[in-house]
Nucleic acid binder design. Structure first.
Length: 420
RNA sequence: GGAGAGAUGGCCGAGUGGCCGAAGGCGCUCCCCUGCUAAGGGAGUAUACGAGAGAUCGUAUCAUGGGUUCAAAUCCCAUUCUCUCCGCCA
């Protein structure tokens, strides 16, 4: 969330920023509530101050055996008034919080202004794969090889689920291992295996709640949600904690299944493993010093790219435009891998700097050299989405006979050179 | 699931109605002494919100939320979490 003091003193800047996101934000209710709150607050605090000092007097009088009935009665009345005003403040606080929790982050000035198609291409790596034959889509390749089974998954669970079978399952596992090995051994991230469910506070901390409840799976009768990304448990790992400046940046990677209801995306990517209710992802999360969080974003993106380079998969990196970044993000790079069947680059990683937006929600702070406590900056990125990586491998490495060559980097994990 | 115990500052830990934002210790910061891979002495050391140009002042916070009271870390209720024992279980 944004700093309430910042909103109070720069309301026009905030509305202008939201405009860039394509959002009309009316702050008038917020501002008047905020002003009203401060008015009532100072009134009730004066009353409390009075009650505190008089109560002290009463204590002394009673000890001396004097009669304090008059003061006791007065303070009884003051207490009633305090209760009433406290209630008002509480109601206003609730409303203010409701509002501020639904205001997204301010897009960074380096972003192109615009919508989904106004991204900026930063760099491309490799060339789109060329074929001497008509390349198939990964779902056809997978089904023919008997390594992906969509039909039975539909029977067992429902739409947008998949069974991986045999070398398909092994390929998924190999990709996971390769990614984790790169990030832990080479890129210096400490691995975590997080819970796959998280509570409401955690979901609020990273920004999934209160606004995006319908995108998640919630457990019946509990305040637990299936995580849509390991970002949630890993970022909230340090919720309500004060970190040491000398430990920054803290870097974690985590493999986890991710669960998304994909509400509102009914027509899109209905075939294959691009958009599933459950998928695997290796996530990178950083807790950084505000001074250099944008440098850390560059590094994090490079760390994710490394996996595609190792797999020799062509990709490009784009900077999302102001209207296309996520709710909590100030700046996002998408890494897009080449998918021959789509004849286009498709998102395989999203790397974002959230500045102090999540840290303020989740109350993650650090103590600086002067001993002052400040919010950290949080960042995260996929390193990478596993299912989409498998899809990219199947499509880019497919052969005319329907077999798929195993990328060199995966062979130690696969035990075979070709899937056929 | 049953029974019991507990939750206090960065950490440990005292505190059963007023003089407690909270003893003492550890850690950390600064100063002094000493002088070298010891030690000793002194001072300081929570966060949030509000008011103020500022020094500063006020309010709140002893797991969370309610309640009792003129006054709550302290009493009552609910919730959450932790620990111990029993049961069940991969």
């Amino acid at each position: 969330m944004l700093d309430i003091k910042f909103i109070r003193s720069n309301p026009d800047e905030v509305t202008a920023a939201m405009k860039k996101r394509g959002m009309d934000l009316d702050l008038s209710e917020f501002l008047s509530l905020d002003e009203n709150r401060r008015k009532i607050l100072s009134e009730v605090e004066q009353l409390k101050s009075k009650r505190n000092s008089v109560s002290k007097e009463i204590g002394i009088m009673k000890k001396n055996g004097e009669n304090a009935d008059q003061l006791v009665q007065e303070m009884g009345e003051v207490g009633e008034k305090i209760k009433e005003l406290d209630e008002q403040v509480k109601n206003i606080d609730t409303r203010l919080k409701d509002i501020i929790l639904t205001i997204p982050n301010i897009p960074h000035e380096s972003l192109p202004v615009g919508g989904e198609s106004d991204y900026r291409v930063e760099r491309t790596w490799g060339e789109p794969t060329k074929f001497a034959f008509d390349p198939q889509a990964h779902w056809d390749i997978g089904e023919k090889l008997g390594i992906l089974d969509f039909e039975r998954a539909t029977k067992v669970t429902g739409a947008r689920f998949t069974f991986y079978r045999g070398l398909g399952a092994r390929l998924e596992r190999a990709v996971i291992s390769l990614m984790l090995d790169i990030h832990t051994s080479e890129n210096g991230y400490e691995e975590l295996i997080p819970p796959y469910m998280a509570n409401k506070d955690s979901m609020t901390g990273t920004g999934q709640l209160p606004k995006f409840a319908e995108d998640m799976f919630k457990l019946e009768g509990l305040d637990y949600y299936l995580i849509p990304t390991a970002e949630v448990p890993v970022t909230n790992y340090y919720r309500d904690e004060i970190l040491n400046e000398k430990d920054l940046p803290i870097k974690h990677c985590a493999f986890s299944p991710c669960f998304r209801s994909e509400a509102g995306s009914y027509g899109r990517d209905t075939r294959g493993i691009i958009r599933q209710h459950q998928f695997h992802k290796v996530e990178l999360v950083k807790f950084a010093n505000p001074e250099n969080s944008f440098e850390e974003l560059e590094k994090l993106t490079n760390d994710a790219e490394k996996v595609l380079q190792r797999l020799n998969l062509p990709y490009r990196v784009i900077t999302l435009a102001t209207g296309d970044i996520g709710f909590s993000s100030a700046k996002t790079y998408d890494i897009e891998v080449w998918l021959p069947s789509f004849k286009t680059y498709r998102e395989i990683s999203s790397c974002s700097n959230f500045l102090d937006f999540q840290a303020r929600r989740a109350n993650i702070r650090y103590r600086d050299k002067q001993g002052k406590v400040q919010f950290v900056h949080t960042l995260n990125g996929s390193g990478l989405a596993v299912g989409r990586t498998v899809a990219a491998i199947l499509e880019n490495y497919q052969q005319a006979d329907g077999s798929v060559i195993v990328p060199e980097a995966l062979r130690p994990f696969m035990g075979v050179d070709v899937i056929k």
